[in-house]
Design a protein around this nucleic acid. Structure first.
Length: 459
RNA sequence: GGCCGAGUGGUAGAGUGGUCAUGCAGCGGACUGCAAAUCCGCGUACGUCGGUUCGAUUCCGGCCUCGGCCUCCA
């Protein structure tokens, strides 16, 4: 079986073959760190984390870069408003971003380049573009001259005339062509800036990714990912810059774009204000349920976020962890994830089917009668979970929940269980049921299993 | 206006030219002192109008509705 990925550039699924199987390269556009990440911002890191895991399983080491944009006008505005240096903003929110992603089970990328750490590379790339006639300096700016790149528009499927006709922004007077975009812009003294051949200034939005991809991964990478809204203009412009800077070498062989998270069917975005912050959600819901919810729809489809979605995810995970909890004493066989799960992920990361297959394994595990079968299925369940980045915690921790809202007093619960069992032994079922109601009132569900009474937090 | 994408059962959400998604919720059965959990079973789903076909939710065309990009945006 081979990995198949939908390539935005070709508008179809294609078998994935790395240029160099010994070093698969992937770049994903990360966050601009001017405030908290919202749950929509978390979709690409989580989705591409699954791809990261799949590629690692198949090829071993993967060179995976996910950038942090730490120079941007929104950051400048935030710093100005709060009267603090830029780095106070970017350091803080970069740290929170990393913490949020770690909580969601996202493995660290192999590198996390910062724009401000690559000013030299950015300037060098711009100089090259000017030298080759693809860019020009004007009034302290440097602009990429779109007509100088004939293939412009290939990724987004639009031609220059469309864009000029649809342009809703005023065309700056120093532009040679309305579609030209900024590579470098001047900074006044109150703004962050770096010395350059064109005066003190700062990079434009797109050039950082081109420069950092070259610095960390090379001229042509295997996979470039990001959200749907980056196709145009961000990725289109990255292509223009990199291809022209590299004598025509393609920037990425496979382009992947995730669909949006919506709220009431409308795109979640900071400009609309309909955002739920990852940081806030994690205070009220288990991180793993949030991750499960994010993966519950295929990555290219829209996903409508709601409380109910998390509740359903949590219940589903309860069931899976319950299956593991039943056999916690039995060590798992050292097996690979079931072929059906791998096959689902190999088909353009079909996580919903992978989840259905995981449910299948859980059902078989619950029905298994021999220890050998149980150990094998437990191993399969854990290995499948590892592919999705779930099911790796101690079932007891998940079920008794120390992480989320209502914390349960374990000793109180256990005392009540002991009292109930005493009543049951005396066949005083009325009293036993009364105590169970009391336990339920604490938000705890109990189960009388063959090996004694177990409890967990109610869903 | 240009370019994309989507409309599936109570709900989330895959998929397919002709018996199966799957989870959650619901109902029935087994099990249990009763529950819970688990297992087994159940529910006449595919926006609309045409076309192709022996047969379409699936292919083609029209229409309706919704969303995204074209401006910062994951």
């Amino acid at each position: 079986m081979s990995l198949i990925l939908y390539n935005t550039l070709m508008r179809r699924k294609e078998p994935f073959t790395p240029a160099d199987p010994a070093r698969v390269t992937m770049y994903v556009c990360g966050n601009t760190v001017y405030s908290y990440a919202h749950i929509g911002n978390a979709r690409p890191p989580v989705v591409f984390d699954v791809l990261h895991r799949l590629l690692k399983a198949r090829y071993g080491q993967v060179a995976y870069a996910r950038n942090i944009t730490d120079v941007d006008d929104k950051i400048n505005a935030a710093a100005k408003a709060q009267k603090v240096p830029i780095t106070a903003i970017t350091d803080k929110f970069a740290r929170i971003y990393r913490e949020d992603m770690a909580a969601l089970g996202v493995l660290p990328p192999t590198s996390e380049p910062h724009a401000t750490g690559h000013i030299r590379e950015i300037v060098a790339m711009i100089e090259g573009l000017i030298a080759s006639g693809h860019a020009y300096a004007a009034e302290g700016h440097v602009l990429f001259n779109v007509p100088a790149f004939a293939a412009y528009g290939q990724l987004s499927g639009r031609n220059r005339d469309d864009m000029v006709a649809g342009a809703r922004v005023e065309v700056a007077p120093y532009k040679k062509d309305p579609a030209d975009f900024v590579l470098w812009k001047p900074s006044t003294l109150d703004l962050p800036g770096w010395d350059s051949p064109w005066g003190r200034g700062r990079p434009g939005w797109h050039i950082e990714c081109s420069a950092m991809i070259e610095a960390h991964l090379g001229q042509t990478i295997d996979i470039h990912g990001g959200g749907n809204d980056l196709i145009f203009p961000h990725h289109e412009n990255e292509i223009a810059q990199s291809v022209c800077a590299h004598g025509g070498a393609p920037l990425a062989r496979y382009w992947m774009h995730n669909g949006f998270l919506t709220m009431d069917k409308e795109k979640m975005s900071k400009s609309l204000g309909n955002v739920l912050l990852v940081n806030e959600i994690l205070k009220t819901a288990p991180a793993e349920a949030v991750r499960w919810a994010l993966l519950s729809a295929h990555y290219r489809q829209p996903l409508d976020w709601s409380d109910d979605l998390i509740t359903q995810a949590k219940r589903t995970l309860d069931r899976l962890y319950l299956a593991l909890d039943q056999i916690k004493g039995l060590s798992a066989a050292n097996t690979q994830a079931p072929a059906a799960v791998i096959a689902a992920l190999d088909d353009d990361l079909n996580t919903p089917i992978a989840m259905a297959e995981i449910a299948n394994v859980a059902r078989m595990l619950n029905s298994a009668t021999t220890d050998a079968d149980k150990a094998r299925l437990k191993g399969e369940l854990l290995a499948a979970g590892a592919m999705l980045g779930v099911l790796q915690q101690d079932p007891a921790v998940w079920l008794k929940g120390t992480s989320s809202t209502t914390d349960v007093n374990a000793s109180e619960v256990e005392q009540l269980i002991a009292a109930r069992n005493a009543a049951r032994k005396a066949r005083d079922f009325k009293e036993a049921d009364r105590i169970r109601d009391q336990i339920a009132a604490l938000g705890v569900v109990i189960e009388d299993r063959a090996d004694g009474t177990h409890w967990r937090k109610a869903g």
